[in-house]
Amino acid sequence: MVTKAAEPDISARLGGLRLSVPTLMGSGCYGSGEEYASLVDLAQLGGVVLKSVTRLPRLGNDAPRLVPVASGLLNAIGLQNPGIESYLASDVAKFADRPCAVVGSVAGFSVDDYAFVTERLAARDEIDAIELNISCPNVGAEGETFACDPDLAERATRAARAATAKPLIVKLSPNVTDIAAIARVVEAAGADALAVINTVRGMAIDVDRVKPKLANVSGGLSGAAIRPIAVLAVWEVARAVRIPIVGQGGIETARDALEFVLAGATAVSIGTGNFTDPRVPLAVASGIRTYLAERGIATLAEIVGSANPGFRGAR
């Protein structure tokens, strides 16, 4: 009689945040999680990164906000949200019963914004960790500035770090010359983990109407189209920092996710993939288990960065 091998352990640790499954749902793609409760068993997800919240209410960009393009999606939502006070009063309590981790996402337009909103949001018991969105490409020049300037990235991170002891994940932009350099200063400023990457700037033009397809003109490109860009970014960041990385950009299958893990990501985030098929996160988790089991590997952590000779993180 053969003893059944124990199921591989695919849990992941991002600073003090433990995920039973290494899949986060990308900010802005999954609302507050409850929107998807009729399509997916949320208990099978690692966690949901909530839609970004800002200090003041924002109506967001005018429509159209979405354009499907080859192998991807362009979006320019523009950080629509009710502002932190209304959010705390009416939305946050809904997250108390979430059967997976809940990561609050903070966006801002000044260092003070990041500190203020992080402190207010992280103070709530319903929130397990904070993701600092310093890389929204769709709110005019100021939105992404924080992720593109090492000094501002450092100051925003330091301010948020001082505002909470909860795990702090900082989301980086691919729209920079040297993402590793930004990663280093954000690590030094006290981030517990890095989310790599946010969307890639892009646009599409309606040649019949002779005008941009998005009301905002430019948008953020996501989906399979950006996966190779994202994998390289994770590869480079993993050689530059020791803190864990959440790999994201076009993940639709377990093999996609494993590319990120082998490049150096401790966990992955799925955004646009949910729009292809809401069952993608479940298939990713089960496919990772199968991959490990077939190779006799006991834990996902063992293979993090194993394709990347310069990987500096802890396994």
Partner: peptide
Amino acid sequence: ACGVGACWG
């Protein structure tokens, strides 16, 4: 994109 009110697209 999502069809369920999550993405505000």
